[in-house]
Simulated assay, not measured.
Amino acid sequence: MEVSALIHTEIQKKWIAKFETVKETFKSHAEYNDLHSRFPYENIEWLVNEGYTLLTLPKAYGGEGATIEDMVILQSYLGAIDGATALSIGWHLSVVGQLFEQKMWQPEMLNAFAEAVCQGALVNRAVSEAETGSPTRGGRPATNAVKLNDGFKLNGVKTFTSMSKGLTHFIVSAYYDEIDQIGFFLIDKDTPGIEIADNWDMVGMRATESHDLILNDVHVPQENFVEIRGAGGKKPNGWILHIPSVYLGIAQAARDYAVEFAQTYSPNSIDGTIGDLPTVQQNIGKMESLLLSARHFLWSTAALYVEKKVKTPVWNETSASKVLVMNQGLEVIDIAMRIVGAKSLEMERPLQRYYRDMRAGLHNPPMEDMAYTNIAHSVLGHF
């Protein structure tokens, strides 16, 4: 079955058609941005101007009201065009989708923030810290919030703040000693005391500019204390599927490159192209099968969130989607590089970037060991 046959909503058709108009432009930026660790400003500006940042905002708030399934499919397509752009904007889409679906803030704050999103605001959570590792492991942040008469004062350093220089708002986690809880604070980028460290220098996802966010005596109004971690009970978050969606797209891009190479590369040692060789055909068949498996599992998991008849929370499928897509996607890229051979390591070819970007996905939540452990607890009836 062709991937296009799985596209069925008007939102999906609309945005895939739009992506086609800028695909080559986005791709042309990718190599330079990767080499220079430069954020894809032009790509993100286009997405904002076209209204893609309103995708997961409900229609009642002025957004497009896309479902989790819509987001997963569109992010997969965008990830195949440029992984760093897709992962960056995906954090915003995910945060907005979860906030409004689960009504995580007070109505007044949701209304105000929806207005900001409609005017082009970009948001991400700033939760990781060097001392705690991944926030999904439950460590208490060193970033602290001190109560003042007119709000709070925050100090701390957040790592892995993706899209840091492009964001208009940060949702920062901090330990609030007075209630012995971890709270979340909505902070505007122009608030005094906010600083971007400019220290992102990684092998993979270089263009996301996920610099450290430094908070020096940052004053936050009382009403911007928007959440307490764990309040209201833990719920499955299907919006986090934006992560495997991007990496599925990167694996698809590697597959596409290897197939085109196999169809056109013709060394003088053989008749025809390498695509005529049985060993290459075996690799292409395996690569395609891995992609089919990953795509159908991920997209069907997203569809479960849309299916109103499903009563069982989609915990295990969500965790397994990320693990399965990452592991099979890595294998797809490895096979693609074997097909292309030593040329796959040439810096002017995108395969080496796909490989590096894909490795970065291993360190996005949920971590593999945590996913397997939580699935095991579910199977064993520990919850």
Results as ranks from 00 to 15, higher is better:
Asn216Phe: 05
Arg140Cys: 13
Tyr175Met: 04
Pro350Ala: 09
Glu209Gln: 14
Val117Ser: 10
Leu87Ala: 07
Phe160Asp: 03
Val310Glu: 14
Thr161Gln: 12
Tyr176Gln: 04
Tyr355Trp: 13
Met337Ala: 09
Ile196Met: 14
Asn216Gly: 03
Asp82Arg: 00
Ala84Arg: 04
Ser162Glu: 07
Leu122Ala: 12
Asp70Cys: 10
Lys13Val: 13
Thr264Cys: 03
Ala86Cys: 04
Ile44Asp: 02
Val314Trp: 02
Asp276Glu: 12
Ala376Ser: 07
Asp357Phe: 05
Ser319His: 14
Ala30Pro: 05
Tyr372Asp: 14
Ala253Lys: 13
Leu35Gly: 10
Val172Arg: 02
Ala251Trp: 09
Gly63Pro: 05
Thr25Asp: 10
Ile182Gly: 07
Asp271Val: 08
Gln102Trp: 05
His211Tyr: 03
Glu317Trp: 02
Glu45Lys: 08
Asp198Leu: 11
Asn224Gln: 15
Ile44Lys: 01
Phe184Lys: 08
Val146Gln: 07
Leu345Asp: 07
Val218Pro: 00
Leu380Trp: 12
Lys343Pro: 01
His382Thr: 11
Ser321Met: 02
Ile196Trp: 12
Thr373Met: 08
Leu78Pro: 01
Ile194Arg: 08
Arg255His: 15
Glu307His: 01
Ala5Met: 13
Glu348Ile: 11
Glu227Leu: 12
Ile16Lys: 10
Ile270Asp: 11
Asp276Val: 06
Glu260Trp: 04
Glu131Gly: 11
Leu148Tyr: 08
Asp276Phe: 10
Leu35Met: 09
Ala145Leu: 00
Val340His: 00
Ala5Arg: 14
Arg295Thr: 14
Lys59Arg: 05
Gly233His: 04
Phe225Arg: 15
Ile335Cys: 10
Glu10Val: 07
Lys343Leu: 14
Asp357Glu: 06
Ile16Met: 08
Ala294Glu: 00
Ser344Ile: 06
Gly341Phe: 08
Gly204Met: 05
Ile270Asn: 09
Ser269Leu: 00
Gly329Thr: 14
Val95Asn: 08
Tyr175His: 11
Thr168Ser: 15
Ala320Trp: 07
Ile44Tyr: 00
Gly151Cys: 04
Phe19Pro: 05
Thr159Lys: 11
Leu324Asp: 00
Thr143Tyr: 00
Trp15Arg: 04
Ile68Ser: 02
Ile375Glu: 08
Tyr372Ile: 15
Val226Ile: 15
Ala254Pro: 10
Arg206Trp: 05
Phe261Ala: 02
Ile333Arg: 09
Ser300Gly: 01
Val323Gly: 08
Ala126Pro: 04
Lys189Pro: 09
Thr161Arg: 07
Glu101Pro: 03
Glu227Arg: 06
Lys27His: 07
Trp105Arg: 11
Ala342Gln: 13
Ser76Leu: 02
Arg338His: 11
Pro236Cys: 06
Gln181Pro: 00
Tyr77Ala: 01
Phe39Asn: 01
Gly193Val: 13
Asn43Ser: 15
Ala360Thr: 13
Lys189His: 15
Val325Arg: 11
Glu346Cys: 14
Leu110Cys: 01
Leu74Glu: 00
Ser293Met: 07
Arg349Leu: 15
Trp91Gly: 03
